[in-house]
Design a protein around this nucleic acid. Sequence first.
DNA 1: CATGAATACTTGTATTTACAAGTTGGAATA
DNA 2: TATTCCAACTTGTAAATACAAGTATTCATG
Lengths: 247, 247
Amino acid sequence: MSTVMTEPYVEYKTTMPRHSAVYEMLRQHITDGVYHEGDLLPSENELCAIHKVTRPTIRKALDRLSNEGFIVRHQGKGSIVKGAPKGVGILAMKGTTSAVGKENLLTSIIVKPEIRTWNEAFSFSLTRVEQESGCIYIERLRLVNNKPVFFDITMIPNINFPRFTGRNLENKSLFDVLRKNYRLEVKGGEQRILAITADERLQKYFGVPSGHPVVQLNRKIETNREGIYIYSQVFCNTDEFVLSGNF
Amino acid sequence: MSTVMTEPYVEYKTTMPRHSAVYEMLRQHITDGVYHEGDLLPSENELCAIHKVTRPTIRKALDRLSNEGFIVRHQGKGSIVKGAPKGVGILAMKGTTSAVGKENLLTSIIVKPEIRTWNEAFSFSLTRVEQESGCIYIERLRLVNNKPVFFDITMIPNINFPRFTGRNLENKSLFDVLRKNYRLEVKGGEQRILAITADERLQKYFGVPSGHPVVQLNRKIETNREGIYIYSQVFCNTDEFVLSGNF
DNA sequence: CATGAATACTTGTATTTACAAGTTGGAATA
DNA sequence: TATTCCAACTTGTAAATACAAGTATTCATG
């Protein structure tokens, strides 16, 4: 009726800044094992030639990789690959994929992405905008070496993610999808940890008896978009795989 | 004998890169409250004029402040001060004291500091030097609002901490003591988290029934002294107080 | 008065150029 | 042969310039 929704924001960026593109490519190559740990990355000038950009652009990409721990730079020597930052275990980290590594992780979707109203958002309070817009709800069970280790519920505000619910997230990192397709990047967040005993559902998923202890993480994740938070609740069976992280 | 050490490197940098100087200054001003939360920082061009540098230099300083969460930048608007990154709870944290706050925390020593051999060091592997030197062992039960919440075991390599075992650590931050008396500062570390059920000892300390879930943290803490790590094992009853932290 | 267009800001991206500083390996020298 | 030194790399810092893109204010127009 009225012009309450002043900004439709339907269109989204189709182009990506060059430095981001270089960053994405190098990051992919590192996580995919094109470069191995200890390898020397091509020099900045070589990368300039490869990607047809200038040094400041390359350096911006390398700055970010360095900040995130993918590489270590040495003046006079070059940039040395450190591999995917395993340091950032799940505790100081974005998602399960980067914590565990893509190889050993299998994901099965319990509830495909669907629009829902927020149920209770795990003890974090929601803004009015978030409440009104509803959320995209996903439930996934994640297997490490074919053993169920994580059961996670993710809730994303239903704001401007065209065709998202149609996407196939099987064996993909949700955060990679968000970063690459919607330029939504995780900046940090808050998490709360407690120990519980597995309820019936978790007993079924994890294949554990009643009374089995489970770690529960509730997290509110900040993004590069003002006011957009991702909420997630992760249950972990720590029998064989403990949660690790650096600080 | 020979000139193996070609460069003594006694002298250190007296100059600081301009972008670092600008970063340090702005950061200081933010933490000191010269700029308040929500304030608009001077524009990049104004900062250029103030600090007599060019925009790329200013931007490098702002990039870092932005990465670390001191400011948020908005294209077309400016850089908004967010204040010092607050409240790191126990998960990204040095010790229990700073996580909970001194007011509500009471500590009772179960095992006073004593020299021991390492028992098993909680799944972290030890260096030869550490193994040979033994460790200082401490057990403490910590009460929040008079309820037992943390039981922690701390192990410090027995290297050059004169009169340490005689110290009274009741209601003190162990890390404060180490910093003030031995100049040992915590730099970071690695931690592993799992859920267990309370054993008899924990049942007694926490006053919980058998089968009660408990969070266990194993941590290896880096210090400013090369090769010196502090190992600690913390058990948490998360019934009333969950563990929280930022990342 | 209300609407919308122009414009004067803001930050974002990218190039070009220059030099400083650390590392490495090979050539000249003792 | 062993040492020293230099040249050719590497990354680090900094400036000057240009334009793109987002925001907010101003001003002319209906």
